[in-house]
């Protein structure tokens, strides 16, 4: 009991800040992947993270739900600090949803079962209730008619929308997107982006690693540019694209906006 009291009082103390990263460092062996990351995300904020490959952007958001461990610094999500404590990790993962580049749907379960698995086993929801909720979210991502199919029977775009619905079924406060459109055919990118834009408009706190600059311009409150494991620049999108401050940002933007 004292655990939960503690948590709620902490979250009140930190006010509207959902995610705090303070001086976060991470190494893969000798390789320094994240260098002194400082980031604060307020509730409802939409953040796009971009940068060249290997710049540590995926690693950074994967630290937020502890798919990766950081070795130095502090990460606090909704008032819960991520440490070795399994209870804290469980707490954070319940509140943070994630969408992966390769969807990672469970191929042995139907779309509906994919969506219900975590609510039933983690939130201990009755199956009927979980299924009803799942159908709502599947309608939100516009594929309720596929509920009884297996992931292998769907197109890439449909699979990614199921993955988004699956995360939403846990009722998360924060959604992380790790290059959600990079593995899709061009004509399917739009349907996924549309889903994400709708989600953003509903007020969800979102962190997206993506190279879809159009998406960044329409929905992001803030764009973060990373290179070599550091946050080089962060700004609101209009300024970021029209008036980049650092040379590296300029170079990166000129490379990806050329076409």
């Amino acid at each position: 009991m004292s655990e939960t009291d503690n948590t709620s009082s902490q979250s009140q103390a930190s006010g509207d800040v959902t995610i705090q990263m303070r001086g976060v460092h991470k190494w893969y062996g000798q390789f320094h992947v994240l260098k002194d990351i400082n980031l604060e995300v307020t509730r409802g904020e939409r953040i796009v993270i971009c940068g060249p490959s290997g710049s540590g952007k995926s690693t950074m958001i994967r630290c937020i739900n502890r798919l990766e461990e950081h070795q130095k610094g502090q990460i606090i999500v909704d008032g819960t600090e991520l440490t070795d404590d399994v209870k804290h990790i469980d707490q954070v993962r319940k509140e943070v949803g994630m969408v992966f580049q390769h969807f990672n749907l469970f191929p042995h379960l139907t779309v509906l079962e994919n969506c219900c698995l975590a609510p039933i086993w983690v939130r201990k929801m009755p199956r009927k209730e979980a299924e009803a909720a799942a159908m709502l979210y599947l309608e939100k991502v516009k594929i309720p008619e596929q509920a009884k199919k297996y992931p292998g029977q769907l197109s890439g775009g449909q699979q990614q929308r199921v993955a988004i619905a699956r995360s939403l079924c846990m009722n998360p406060n924060v959604m992380l997107f790790d290059e959600p459109t990079s593995a899709l055919d061009p004509e399917m990118i739009k349907e996924v982006l549309d889903t994400m834009i709708e989600l953003a408009e509903s007020g969800m706190t979102m962190l997206c690693v993506t190279h879809e600059m159009g998406f960044a311009k329409t929905v992001a409150d803030r764009v973060i540019f990373m290179d070599g494991g550091e946050i080089i620049e962060e700004n609101e999108p209009h300024e970021f694209f029209n008036n980049p401050q650092s040379d590296r940002t300029q170079l990166f933007l000129s490379q990806i906006l050329q076409h």
């Binding site: 469980d90 943070v96 949803g97 699956r166 846990m170």
Partner: peptide
């Protein structure tokens, strides 16, 4: 490994992940 990661990201414990996924 993506399957394990997805299960973990959904909040499933390692034991449940092994058993269910």
């Amino acid at each position: 490994h993506g399957q394990t990661e997805a299960a973990h990201a959904l909040g499933l414990r390692p034991g449940s992940t092994l058993r269910l996924v």
